[in-house]
Amino acid sequence: MQRDDIRNLAMLVAFAIIGLLFPIVATTRFSQHILVMVVLYAVLGEAWNIMAGYAGMVSIGQAAFFGLGAYVSSVLSVKYGVSPWLGMLCAGLATAAFATVIGLPFSRLRGRYFAIGTIALGQMIKVVFENWQWVGAATGLMIPLANQGFASFQFHASKLPYYYTGLALLLLTLAFMYIMERSKMGYYFKAIRENEDVASGLGVNRTAYKLIAIAVSAGITGMCGTFLAQYSLYVEPEYMFNHSISVTIALVAVFGGSGNIIGPVLGSAILMPISELTRAWLGSSGTGIDLMIYGAFIVLMCVYEPEGLVGMARRIGASIKAQRERRGAARCQNS
């Protein structure tokens, strides 16, 4: 365990360094956009991971929390002139609170019923915002352009500040998960995931821990909502509560390998560039071939690498190790 811990910590640090150095290669605006999408969906995937990968509650409605967070900070900044940074904090707290209230009845649901319940939640909240005049209804809200800088959370000349903000968010989330994984909470989450009834029988307060998982996941997702709102300076129900956001979040996490810290980051690091690059290269043909490739990729991955990228890495690692051992054994025999 000790050695594992050190290795994981080293990996985290290495990640941070790689993350910080990436922009040296990514000099064009579009490659910076891809980096921003990678960190954004990595954070979203990690948030999903807390709920689904660790506590076993599969959500396909994260857009509910995402959109809510985007709206909280945007309403605060457009209507009351609150700084987006404070807005981001409020967004996190508000979505976490909302998720706790919603989570109470939802924690009764299990497995697929929960998953489809989250789809329902995402759709319902979208309809509410579409018809709520005070927040702009279907027209949404525009965040006025301001002078760029960290004070306004708007950067026009380069996208790198957005990237670093996202990266900071990602590292904070990873650090939180690192601690969580080693705490009692992490074990309780896993116990609930493996078998709720047994966990409960062993004295784990399952409703409380489920609610914590939902609230933390929703809070982080809500903060990401603020991030995208500041990135595009526009919120609209059709946009922020879009079902495809929920699907992409789940895809990223599962693709990378859920239930461990590194999976969603890897998933996002592969899936987002594929999605963006295929669109850039093939999308303008208007034939849909870019999304065909994307879909086929996911299917192939499920068939041949069902454990996700992490599983793939582990297997490759194991086979290298086995090979080395075999060679070692052969050498022993020879001598």
């Binding site: 789940a250 599962v254 693709f255 990729f297 996911i298 991955m301 499920c302 069902p306 454990e307």
Partner: peptide, 8 residues
Amino acid sequence: ARLLVTFG
């Protein structure tokens, strides 16, 4: 993976 494949 079973959940994901049909999305793909």
